[in-house]
Amino acid sequence: MLSSLLLPVLSLPACYAQSGEAVGNNKASSSQLSDAGLQLVPLTISSAGKTHKFTVEVAGTVEEQAQGLMFRQKLAPDEGMIFPFPEPRPASFWMKNTVIPLDIIFVRSDGTVESIAANTTPYSLEPVRSGEAVAAVLELAGGRAAELSIDAGDKVEWPR
């Protein structure tokens, strides 16, 4: 774990809230839960005149964000995980204990894609960082952003 004075980072993704405190403003129904017990919400990405639909898990607490997609063996093409932050901040993730490659998409407060780290390396301890303060991070199956031509500036929308 890195010090919050140096970078706002914990192991695979991080955020700052009291233990168990929600870090996003999630309005999803608790009746829609993933196998991991996380809330499921619809998410769309608008790119080059097309809309791509996903169902994503919301990692809304410190514990959920620290766990992220670690140890998962698969991620369907229309699934992912969103990590909302209470306030925009520089984000840094790593792939420790993450079995599958991921596309890590950094999302600004206005919902636009700031940058994409494509096909991140499983188990890597190298930090994957946003280029500026972001409001959320979206993880999709590795290579999915390229398949759908998702790029910086595209729009990401989900219930917040």
Rank of each mutant, 00 (worst) to 15 (best):
K74W: 10
P42M: 04
S19N: 08
Q73V: 02
T51R: 13
A17W: 00
A28G: 14
N26C: 13
E64G: 01
P42G: 09
A76E: 15
G24D: 02
H52F: 12
P77I: 11
F54K: 11
P13I: 01
S31C: 02
P13F: 03
A36L: 14
K74E: 14
A66H: 07
S46W: 05
E57F: 03
T51H: 08
N26E: 13
T51V: 15
Y16S: 08
E63G: 06
A48S: 15
G24E: 02
A17M: 00
Q18M: 05
K27F: 04
A22T: 11
R72N: 13
V58E: 05
S19V: 08
L38M: 15
A14Q: 09
N25G: 09
L69N: 03
S29I: 04
E21C: 05
I45G: 02
G68A: 03
L40A: 12
L43Q: 04
T61N: 04
S11I: 06
C15Y: 00
T44G: 02
G20M: 05
A28S: 14
L40Q: 13
S46Q: 15
V9M: 01
A59L: 06
I45L: 11
S46A: 15
I45Y: 01
A17Y: 00
E79V: 03
N26D: 15
A36H: 10
P13L: 06
K53G: 11
A36P: 01
V62F: 10
K27C: 10
A59Y: 08
Q73D: 15
E57N: 09
A28P: 00
G80N: 07
G80C: 05
T44L: 03
T55P: 01
H52Q: 13
V9Y: 08
F54M: 13
Q18V: 01
G49L: 11
I45R: 01
A48G: 14
K53S: 15
L75N: 10
K27Q: 14
V58R: 03
M70S: 14
V23D: 04
K50H: 15
Y16T: 10
V62Y: 10
G49M: 10
T61G: 03
G49W: 02
D78W: 09
A59P: 00
K27I: 14
S11H: 06
T44Y: 04
E63R: 06
V56M: 07
S47I: 09
Q39D: 07
L38V: 03
Q39F: 02
H52D: 11
K50S: 15
G60C: 00
E63V: 00
T51A: 13
P13A: 09
G24F: 01
T55S: 14
S46E: 15
Y16L: 10
M81L: 10
S47W: 13
Q32L: 12
P42A: 07
F54A: 14
V58I: 13
S31D: 13
L43S: 04
E64H: 02
A36V: 01
A66K: 09
N26Q: 07
S31K: 11
P13R: 07
T55W: 02
F54G: 12
A36T: 12
V41A: 13
L12W: 07
L38A: 11
Q67L: 12
A48M: 10
M81P: 02
S31M: 07
G60T: 04
L75H: 04
E79A: 15
G24Q: 03
G60R: 03
A17C: 12
K50C: 11
P77G: 12
Q65C: 00
S19P: 00
T61W: 01
N26M: 03
E79I: 01
A28R: 08
L10F: 04
